[in-house]
Every structure is written in C-alpha cells, then in structure tokens.
C-alpha cells in the first residue's frame, strides 16, 4: 500500500537503513556451544560470579 503525503512524498520511497550484514559463513554446532559454555563457566568460577549468586540463594528452612 502506498501512502501519499501532502507534498507528494510516497512512503514507498523511504528505505529503512538495514542491518549491516555479516558475510562470513559459520555454522553453530552443539559441540561449539559446549566449548563456549565451558569457557563461560570457567570464567564465572574464576571471577567469583557463582560465589556471588550463591550468596543470594534462599535456603529451605
């Protein structure tokens, strides 16, 4: 559908700025995600994220 404005602009003439496209082919795999997960878990253990989160746990009384 084309909308005409008072001064003759057509909305169809407007082009939304697009996303910059990644040109590189890559395939996300289960094994790849597992490797990434191991890295993140290791980082969170080293920098104390898990320790901090454990402190905010609610314990069953």
């Amino acid at each position: 559908m084309t909308y005409l404005f008072g001064k003759g602009f057509k909305i169809d003439d407007y082009k939304m700025p697009g996303y910059e496209e990644n040109k590189r082919n890559y395939e996300i795999t289960t094994e790849g995600i597992l490797e990434g997960v191991d890295s993140v878990i290791s980082a969170f253990r080293k920098n104390g994220v898990f320790d901090e989160l454990r402190k905010s746990c609610i314990s069953q009384s």
Partner: peptide
C-alpha cells in the same frame, strides 16, 4: 551463559 557462550566461541565479520 548460553548466549555469552555463543559470543565467546563464534566470531564473525
């Protein structure tokens, strides 16, 4: 963690 793992493991342009 899942999403950070994706960003950590995969690099694109």
């Amino acid at each position: 963690i899942s999403s950070l793992a994706i960003c950590e493991e995969y690099k694109d342009d």
